[in-house]
Design a protein around this nucleic acid. Sequence first.
DNA 1: CTCGACAAAATTGTCAACAAACGGAGCCGA
DNA 2: TCGGCTCCGTTTGTTGACAATTTTGTCGAG
Lengths: 224, 224
Amino acid sequence: MTESAAHRQPGERSVVVAIRDAIVRGEFVPNQRLVEADLSAQFGASRATVRAALIELTNEGLVERVQNRGARVRAVSLEEAVEISEVRMMLESLCAAKAAERISDAEVGELLELGERMQQAVAAGDVVGYSGLNQHLHRRVREISGQRTAAQVLERLRGQSVRHQFRLAMRPGRPQVSLPEHLAIIEAICAHHPAEAAEAARIHLSSVIEALKAADAEVSPLHS
Amino acid sequence: MTESAAHRQPGERSVVVAIRDAIVRGEFVPNQRLVEADLSAQFGASRATVRAALIELTNEGLVERVQNRGARVRAVSLEEAVEISEVRMMLESLCAAKAAERISDAEVGELLELGERMQQAVAAGDVVGYSGLNQHLHRRVREISGQRTAAQVLERLRGQSVRHQFRLAMRPGRPQVSLPEHLAIIEAICAHHPAEAAEAARIHLSSVIEALKAADAEVSPLHS
DNA sequence: CTCGACAAAATTGTCAACAAACGGAGCCGA
DNA sequence: TCGGCTCCGTTTGTTGACAATTTTGTCGAG
């Protein structure tokens, strides 16, 4: 019954981002029921607006809706998280290659500085800061690639797997593993080497997939 | 003013498929305005239902919606069609590889028979029949791969580029080019060779991209 | 004749209320 | 005690009407 954010001017479209944020930030946990009337009260919007938002979020893969039974926060299984990472592996390698072809000198400087900051964050043990830079890097690479279709798909998938991503970032030693992979991607892109950039992205996502499986095995050592 | 399909009991979800079919079948042409009240009358559903359908189709990339300005059929440019094909190149190669790993003996027979039928269709000059078998093959490969995330993304992208796909299939000589590429994919998958299957899919989609550009260059030789 | 402002029409966004469907509690009978 | 049934509360699906916004059409001034 947290009435924390109940005083806003809903307007229209902000309800979507509000609910999406609540899900991504973990305020709404997986499998939690999303009753239209409740959300309507929480966000001060009409039920029709909430309904429209839920439909939109359903197509984004964040909520699940079944006929006459309401909506709930979709829980992505480990298997799905791996699938998502496999798709990301293909598309991020595509974007990395394209980015290596199209990157400008100014953007080269930007990416190199980003790499510096990531190194500093890891050295300082700033896990959440590194996680943020991580996302920033991936997003920037997508933008530089100019492949808007791939970027759109990747953005959608990121929303779905953010919970697993977060759990991964919290694993001790994980930053030390992923940092050199990220630096390799940056280096290849900045050097205008598409093939190497794609390969670096592939390696990175392969590492993510392995870490996902390992993290799950640790949480549930014997799943029966 | 075609009141062709006005006698139905849509009720709820069928409105989405009705509008989607109308768009992909070409009944609604690109950039055509989609007024909620009109659709409401055409399909015998309430405006709220139509509205929900439009929101859903927006996330599928079939319609474009802007604040207080209504919805219209999204027109995918050549550039976007190429982008979509690039994404498909990555994801279909992933699915092809996975399918090569997981395919069962029964499915091997199914795919081989599909290949036979495609050869017959091309030999008989049955363009539309070949086009249908074409889509069937791609869909079946996605299903066999078991990669539901990639399959979902591919299905969405197919809806967006169906118009360009169709234009391509109509180009004289195109079936003769794509047939061996499809047969190569089938062969590699049935032989349980993931790497070769992925490569065959890549080659095929590269060919599609080239054909797209060529078709556009022919339609608008000098675009100014 | 063109440009700007104003008014009217059309269209979307929002809201509240009604009807239908699902889930569960409680009851009845075996 | 257990199985099935009915009734009731809750939640969604749908409808209609109202408000806000954009677009279009018109008129007058320069």
